[in-house]
Design a protein around this nucleic acid. Structure first.
Lengths: 227, 227
DNA sequence: CTCTTGCGTTAGAGGTTCTAACAAACGCAA
DNA sequence: TTGCGTTTGTTAGAACCTCTAACGCAAGAG
């Protein structure tokens, strides 16, 4: 994975950081964000607590790093699904991409919640994090653009929402996309997040509802909506 | 508020618990669930730390109580909106009820996140909490039932999702509702939660999107969907 | 008017984050 | 190869946290 070992020291440093993050993820999965403890990670690595502070400025930085990684990981998964399904029918592609999103979240709920659950207080998003988030959205928009009827591009951006989304699109270098595609992209993201986070947090269980079925029904509804 | 002062002691006890919860909510708003500390609450109340353990078995119980209260509060808000709009057009009522949900969440994001954000590890839902959650859903279903075309009741429950929702409906004493109403109720909840939680967590800000506009657009889309 | 129950206190165990000061190891460069 | 500076790990300790135990006092119940 191109360990980029410029110097032996940096190489070792990177290994130590990776190991610490690996254990942090285990703790995260086991007992949530509150269960991630610098001290106990150090103990499990066979060093004393303060030693780890040579590698992370503090607990917040460690968590921030986990968030950063997760954003990129999720974006990779969604982008990958868009790429791998590139030759299939647009509606199928949307299902695939949405399914990749949901699949990623279900496979590692704690990481998903780190991104989209209760914001961690000391966290400020590093710029490349926002970037990775937009990568996911770009993949969705890509598929939606192929799904939309061609005459759509001619329609004007009339609503305030259209204008806001349009401005964002231009900032992201996606100014060519029709307003309706951006609008639908936002709807996909929002609904997907709604379903997935309810499912992950266990709020569907008391209703006896299978998240997969809800997912399919909502995608059907979305694909049936007129443009 | 019917302080139900059976004995002076119980009365005082209830006051102390209420005061502690009040301060806990302040801390929650200020620095999230992790910022709620039994010790510092006690300090602010002018007593020593361990004193509060006479009133709450531990930090988890205090948080659980906050969750319980929030569920009831939210259900009251949603039910209230359904009741107050009882004489208006069904589509308007749905907007009102959804708006009440969103309004409650925006007014107290930390409490909303306590319910629907990252689950707190030590939490097990008390039975009456699930009950309150279903009260909110019942209000939504009530409005949707008025919105649905009357011939709907005749249609069979054919899909697996319909069967799961039907079973839940019967358990809740809402067995008379058509499958499509239950399905749409779930969709409303899921989409509403998606929008609101993205907005609250600040995920719309980097896109420059106003949550209110997304909310209106999604409600329009929902009302336009065929039954 | 007694006597049980409830409440607040201090003491303390064991956990946390994080800083400060020191010692050892490591690698680079003369 | 021999210094020498940087990096790393150590211990000590401050300031928090949750929660238990033991004690004394105050207040309501009978």
């Amino acid at each position: 994975m191109a360990d980029q070992a410029r110097t032996p020291r940096e190489r070792y440093r990177e290994q130590t950081r990776a190991e610490a993050k690996r254990i942090a993820l285990e703790q995260l999965a086991a007992s949530g964000p509150a269960g991630v403890s610098v001290n106990s990670i150090a103990r499990r690595m066979g060093v004393t607590g303060p030693a780890l502070y040579r590698y992370f400025a503090g607990r917040d930085e460690l968590l921030t790093e986990l968030i950063r990684d997760a954003y990129h990981d999720l974006a990779d998964a969604v982008e990958g699904a868009a790429r791998e399904s590139a030759r299939r029918a647009p509606a199928t592609r949307l299902r695939e991409v949405a399914s990749a999103f949901r699949g990623w979240a279900l496979a590692q709920p704690h990481r998903y919640l780190l991104l989209f659950g209760t914001p961690v207080p000391g966290y400020v998003a590093p710029p490349d994090t926002v970037n990775a988030a937009h990568r996911s959205m770009a993949a969705i928009l890509d598929v939606l653009a192929a799904l939309a009827p061609p005459e759509l591009a001619a329609r004007p951006r009339r609503s305030a929402l259209d204008r806001q989304l349009g401005a964002w699109g231009e900032r992201q270098g996606a100014g060519h996309l029709p307003a309706a595609v951006l609008r639908r992209g936002l709807a996909v993201w929002s609904r997907l997040h709604g379903m997935v986070s309810l499912e992950i947090a266990g709020h569907l269980t008391p209703m006896g509802v299978d998240g997969e079925l809800l997912f399919r029904a909502e995608l059907d509804a979305l694909l049936a909506e007129p443009w």
